[in-house]
Design a binder for these strands. Structure first.
Lengths: 155, 155
DNA sequence: CCTTAGCTGATAATGACTATCACAAAATAC
DNA sequence: GTATTTTGTGATAGTCATTATCAGCTAAGG
């Protein structure tokens, strides 16, 4: 687990630099985020996962930790159409986000690594005189599994 | 107000076709949406505007009406990062949404009429085997007014 | 050791939204 | 044309994610 270890170190360093203490609760929350970095967990889900690591963490502490991590841009807080906040590791500290593919059938969220929006951003900045800092792009549709299933059902 | 009148007619027609009654509450809600079509109102804001038209409408009725209008694709329900649903007239019944420019300073939401994502969607469908039905794209940044103000403050 | 600041957990409060329920209005049955 | 079912409404209670509060804990410095 070399990669997780180094990411963990970097995050702890960032917390320390910003003057926050490295409490066990915060370490465990970061640990869960690193272990589930492919998922897009809600605060509640993170809370349950941390609690399952035999610690009695409070829900409020999870929310506070996520707030700090968001401020430090270690994670991104994302809100899809259901209005529930989900959190997403932002390892490579890029200015720009990856995009998301939200399946309308199973609700799964997949990531798109490429950005592909530079040209469009340039157009926006020129045509609308709007200074772009970031963006959120989500495609709604059917994931591989669900679209296959749909075909066989319909056929 | 020719344009509003014809839009109004079309919407009433759609409601009728779908088997919904044209109650005064529903008409007034549509009226408000048409009058404020540039804005992106929350349910609460729509409620207050309808109430100010001297009717004692209930908040629940507004929510119910917005739900119906969303089902019929007359309006779009959008959730930005604050988690509050906002509603947006979808006059031209295009498959695809316009995009949004959310100002991080004043909170204003501007619209981008062009779509510009066809090429990217094709890439997504090919590379991720994901059937795209719709998308949501929001740019976060500074609107014209706020970026000008920022410059003079910093200069 | 004592004080202070930073953290935590339990829980109350908030705020957007949804469900419920009794009543009204309209459509349909008889 | 009245009875009955359906649809819609307003008030309000309930839900659920999130935030604020507050007493107690913990670590650090004097």
């Amino acid at each position: 687990m070399k990669k997780l270890d180094s990411s963990f170190k970097i995050i702890k360093q960032k917390l320390h630099e910003a003057g926050f203490k490295l409490t066990p609760q915060r370490e465990l929350t970061v640990e869960v985020l690193l272990e589930k970095e492919k998922d897009h967990l809600s605060a509640e889900e993170i809370y349950l996962l941390v609690k399952s690591k035999n610690t009695g963490i409070g829900l409020a502490t999870v929310y506070r930790t996520l707030e700090i991590l968001t401020e430090l841009q270690i994670i991104n807080k994302l809100t899809f159409q259901d209005g529930i906040a989900r959190y997403d590791l932002n390892m490579n500290s890029e200015k720009h986000q990856h995009h998301h593919l939200l399946c309308l059938k199973c609700g799964n969220i997949e990531e798109v690594k490429q950005d592909m929006l530079f040209e469009i951003e340039k157009e926006i900045e020129r045509d609308y005189q709007f200074v772009v800092r970031d963006h959120r792009l989500t495609f709604h549709g059917l994931c591989r599994n669900c679209s296959n299933r749909q075909e066989t059902e319909e056929g």
